[in-house]
């Protein structure tokens, strides 16, 4: 198990279809859609690693992973 400070939200823009679930249901409002309509992290310090974005992403394009993972 990795500790919280080793984890971060990761995004795969190639799989993101821009549905907006992660952006709308993030409790701390730290995600946004960029000008390509892809999810992007706008305030990493504000992310509480709750996992809501990962659970509600229909495309497995956003998840909590190790900072060191590729």
């Amino acid at each position: 198990m990795k500790s919280k400070d080793q984890l971060e939200v990761k995004i795969n823009p190639d799989w993101c279809k821009g549905c907006g679930n992660c952006v709308s249901f993030c409790p701390t409002n730290v995600l946004a859609l960029d000008h390509h309509g892809k999810s992007t992290m706008v305030n990493r310090e504000g992310c509480i690693l709750c996992g809501m974005c990962e659970k509600l992403c229909p495309d497995f394009a956003i998840w909590i992973g190790g900072k060191e993972d590729e």
Binding site: K17, G18, K55, P58, D59, F60
Partner: peptide, 13 residues
């Protein structure tokens, strides 16, 4: 993957 379901379709969830 990626799958063929439409943007926002809940099937992936």
């Amino acid at each position: 993957l990626p799958h063929i379901w439409c943007p926002g379709c809940s099937n992936g969830v």
